[in-house]
Structures are given as structure tokens and as C-alpha cells.
Amino acid sequence: MKINLFEDKKITEEYLDIHFTEMRPMIRQLIDTVRSERPVITGRPADEDIDDGEEIILDPEEIYYFDHVERKLYAYTESGVYRLMTTLSSVEEQLSNYGFVRVSKSNLVNIYKIKQLKPDINMKVYLSFDNGERICINRSYKKSFNDYLQKMRRMGK
């Protein structure tokens, strides 16, 4: 994408024009950033005490998936596992434009981190990530997962 930057001391209000052929995830993310609506996901290292651990800002691009276990929400990244003090549905809402899609009642995955998608001998479909972990796509979420991929593909064209 071509970027033109103009410095003008005379203007009273700064503005930004974005010229695009079609609304793509990247354009949507740019708009969110400018409007300061870019989602901020924070979490504490899962192995530390929830009250003592330092809260860290997580980059959505670094997250493989979210897992909801026993009413606790965890984010799995390359650097480790973080516990989040929010709900899976609110994270899903925040990150729906950033490649995150629900594949089961307790898992929200980053489609940009998926390495392979393969059915198993027992007819379950598994997603495998760069880090070697595998997650099963629940039958009830199969259609919504497919719809999401098609939406992301259309947006990217």
C-alpha cells in the first residue's frame, strides 16, 4: 500500500484520507487504530498468582487461540500462556475483524496462525498451529467457521 505523508503547519485539524478498492481487514484495522478503537487485550502470565502478576498487553497477531476452561480464559501465544480477566464472547466481538473465529464453545482461534486443517480417522476435523498444538472444530461451529473464512476471503479481495 502506498503511503503519502504531508506536513502542513497551517491546518487547524489533522485529517487522514484512506483510498481503498474494497473494505479489507487491514483497512478496518487502520481505521480502528486511528479512531483509537484498536482492541487492547491484556493478560497476566498464567503461572503467576492472578493478584501479583503484572498485566501485559498482548498483540492479537501473536495469539494462537483463546481457551475457556473452568470459567477462566487463557490466551496461548508463542511466548507463553496468559490469563485474561474478560469473557470469551467479548474477546470474540473485539477481534472478529482481526482473524479470530469461534470453533467450539470454549475456543476462539486466530486463522492467520493455522498451519493445517485436516479430518482425523474418527471424522473429527482438527486445526494445527505453527507451535504444533491441535484444536478440534466442533460440528456445530463448522458452518460458521466456513462462513467466516468466506467473509475474510471476500474482504481481502
Binding site: 493445517q116 486443517l117 473464512l149 475474510m152 476471503r153
Partner: peptide, 14 residues
């Protein structure tokens, strides 16, 4: 077949 198509879509998006 669905998994194969989804895999192709994923690669394209990525």
C-alpha cells in the same frame, strides 16, 4: 473435501 477447500481458503487469506 470441505476441509481441503477450507485449507485452500486459509492459505489464500494468509
Amino acid at each position: 473435501d470441505d476441509a481441503k477447500k477450507q485449507q485452500e481458503m486459509l492459505k489464500e487469506i494468509q
